[in-house]
Structure formats: structure tokens, C-alpha cells
Design a protein around this nucleic acid. Structure first.
Lengths: 217, 217
DNA sequence: CGGTTAATTGAACGCATTCAACACGAGTGG
DNA sequence: CCACTCGTGTTGAATGCGTTCAATTAACCG
């Protein structure tokens, strides 16, 4: 099996020419400005979404205003595929985005399309695995480890030396179950140990991969 | 409301005579003693499981020995349905269990069986929703709230006054991302406020539903 | 009963939060 | 060009929640 992408990378860009085609054919492309809502929490879920460009985040806000970020989705990623009748998390454009939107009915009409079925199954698998990892992280990792894990997972998807952080500290904190202050402290700490280096707040480079890996645990 | 099960209860026993039939026909029934492994972490996932009687828990242990409980499964629940090639969590019999085990290949042969497909989809949906709720809980709730939520969710699935706790404090703690001591303290606290009452360590009764609900947030 | 494990309670500690002040960067207008 | 502002990020000090370590009590089982 000669793959253009790494099976071990849980979120690497996937080769999906046929899939892209299917999505382009069945759905329509929509643009979203930075910080606008793609769908709301508890909204009916009869669409399926695919990121063409930009970054999307999913969030849930509790009655008393506490916020939890579910995940971040990058170009090529499918999202909004909760199996139930409505979205338990809202989806928002983190940056300006191009999204392909497909009605589930349209998808169903194409059920049997092996390529498409496989892609949805694969996306569901990734979604679950990421959710499971998230649970372990929030349940059993320290702030330092969470931040390290986070930087790792972001650095892994961009193989360039310099890594771009599309989200601000608040989004990181709400994803990691921490406060912005703690995130900030951990970042300066990791930088102090020369494990990572931040030339600017939204850009970093990993200096000691093994050390970061060890921390990500 | 006189239902054998409650639609609002996300994990209530579901009426599934036809489904039970399908499982019994396709798979074989296996018994597991208390505290024995059903499948291991990172084991190949080519089976599907259904609890006939008893309670199952899924766990993941990190390299350095920290443990996270994924979920608990009761009679009627499907588990082990991770979409990927192997189990990211181990499954263990919490109590003595009767389990129906089905090979995925056998399931696939029956693909198209509407009843079966629907059941698997439904189980996957529940799995994801529970995972999402778990993330929010671990990310944003206090120890007190976590314990309250937990008692709530268990009390909901048994409509009798007296509720049986099948798991010990360590399992609760590892599910909630806490220590046994903290769990214990929160339980005595809630009992002190007469919100719940523990006649014995493994048995309790909810006294103030609204208060508990408010806490579960 | 004793023997063993599980659960509770207490006291001290430490990690993350909270509250507050300060720094930085980008955009705007004098 | 600098002053000003506004949003975002960093840093400091104090507090507090949950943990850790240790001792005690309760439940279970022969």
C-alpha cells in the first residue's frame, strides 16, 4: 500500500481527489467570515461539512456560560457529522473559511458510493478517537502536559519548521480545560526550557521534539 | 408517564426484541467473571459486543500508569464499536457478565438489515454524545458537579427509589478525573446537605432531585 | 470472630485559578 | 511620527480546590 499520507498521523491532510469531487458535486461551497457561526448548538443536523480552506472550531456553552471547545478542523476535514438529529456543539469559523456543505439527503442518495462511505466512516473514526484522547487528556493530564500535547498535535500537521497557531489563547484554554493565564504560563515555561520557541504569539517552532513528546505522554 | 424506558434517558434500557434476536442468532453468548478482561487496549477490533446482563467498563491506562475510565455499559448496551481497526480502550467486566459477541464480518453479511443498522447507528450516536458530555464535564465542571452529574446519570437509568452502584469509588474517580478521596468527600458533602442518602456505600437514594439537577448543570 | 480490602476523614501541600496590574501589537487620528 | 486606544497576551500575588499522605473506620469474607 503506497499512501501519500501517514496512517499514524491522526489528522494529516488526506488525499481525497475523488472525495473532493463528490463533495463539490453534491454540495455547495459557502464562505464564512472570521468568527461567524456555521451552525448553532442544538440546531438540527441535516448537513455535512467539509473544510476547503481556513480553520473551524466547535464549541459548547453551558447554561452558566462556561465554554468548552470540542475540536479544531482544518482543510480536508469533515465535521458536523454527529450521528444524532441535532448538533450538540456549535461550529464557528475561526478564520475566514471556505466550506463545502452537503445535505445528508443528498449523501444518502449516493449511499453505496464506496469512496464516500469510506470517507464518512473514516471521519467518524477520527472524531471518536480524538474525542477519546480528549477525555484522557482532560481527565488525567496536568496543565503542562495538556499544553505540550496541544502544541505537538498542531506541529504534527504542519511539517514546516515554523508552525502557525490559528487560534488565540482563549480558544486553547477552552479546548484544554484551563484558563488563559495557565496556558500562557505553561507556554513561557516550555519556552524557558527551550523546548519550543515563540517568535510571536501566534507562531512557534519545536526545538526539542523528544522532550515535547515525553511531556505529551 | 408509564414507559418501560424513558426516551429522555440517554441510556435507558431500550426495547429491542428483534435486535436481541439478531444478536443471539449471529453471535455467541459468553460469560465473564467479575474483573476479567473482555478485550485489551490496542487489541484488534473485529467484534461487536452487547451486554445481556451485568455491567462493563472501558478503561485506558497511560504509559506511566494513570487510568481513565471511558464509560460504563449496562444490559442492552452495545459496546466495542469503535470504528477504527483496534480498541483504544480496554473493556472489562465490572460485575459478572453475560455478553453476546458478534464478528463484524457476520454483521456485515447482514448489512441492510434495517433493524440492525439502526441499532448500530443509534449506539454510535449515544457513544459520541456521551463522549462529548464527558469532555465538557472533565473540562469545565468542579468535583462537586462531576459527582452530582454522575449520581444523576446513574439514578436516571433505574427508576426505583433505591439505586445500586455497581462500581467502587476508584472506578468513579477514574471516570470523573478525580481521586477516590475527593469523590468520597463530595459524596459525604452531598449527603450532609440531604441531597442524596447512602444507606450503604454501594446503594443510594436521591432526596432532592432539583438540587441534584441544578448541580449536574 | 480475625484478616483483608474498601471507604472515610484529617492535615498539609501544591497546582491551577482568580484578581489585578502591566506589556505588547495593531489600528487610528492628531 | 507620535499619542491614544483597544484587544490580547503576559506576569505577579493571593486564594482555593483538589491532591497527597497518613490514620482511622467500615464493609466484606473466610
Amino acid at each position: 500500500m503506497t499512501l501519500a499520507y501517514d496512517m499514524n498521523d491522526p489528522r494529516g491532510a488526506r488525499p481525497a481527489s475523488a472525495l473532493t469531487d463528490a463533495f463539490e458535486r453534491l454540495g455547495k461551497r459557502v464562505s464564512f467570515d472570521r468568527e461567524t457561526e456555521i451552525y448553532a448548538q442544538d440546531e438540527e443536523a441535516d448537513m455535512l461539512y467539509r473544510v476547503v480552506s481556513g480553520v473551524v472550531r466547535t464549541t459548547r456553552v453551558t447554561l452558566d456560560g462556561r465554554r468548552q471547545v470540542g475540536d479544531f478542523y482544518y482543510a480536508g476535514d469533515l465535521f458536523g457529522l454527529e450521528v444524532g438529529p441535532d448538533h450538540r456543539f456549535a461550529a464557528e469559523a475561526l478564520t475566514d473559511c471556505e466550506i463545502t456543505v452537503v445535505r445528508r439527503a443528498a449523501m444518502r442518495a449516493f449511499a453505496g458510493d464506496a469512496e464516500l462511505d469510506r470517507a464518512i466512516l473514516e471521519a467518524t473514526r477520527l472524531e471518536m478517537e480524538r474525542l477519546q484522547d480528549h477525555v484522557v487528556m482532560l481527565g488525567r493530564k496536568s496543565a503542562r502536559e495538556r499544553v505540550a500535547s496541544f502544541l505537538m498535535s498542531i506541529a504534527q500537521r504542519q511539517d514546516e519548521g515554523q508552525v502557525e497557531l490559528p487560534m488565540g489563547r482563549q480558544d486553547m484554554a477552552d479546548y484544554l480545560g484551563l484558563t488563559i493565564e495557565t496556558v500562557s504560563r505553561m507556554l513561557t515555561q516550555l519556552q524557558g526550557e527551550a523546548i519550543v520557541e515563540f517568535p510571536s504569539t501566534r507562531r512557534f517552532q519545536v526545538r526539542k521534539w523528544t522532550a515535547l513528546e515525553a511531556l505529551a505522554a
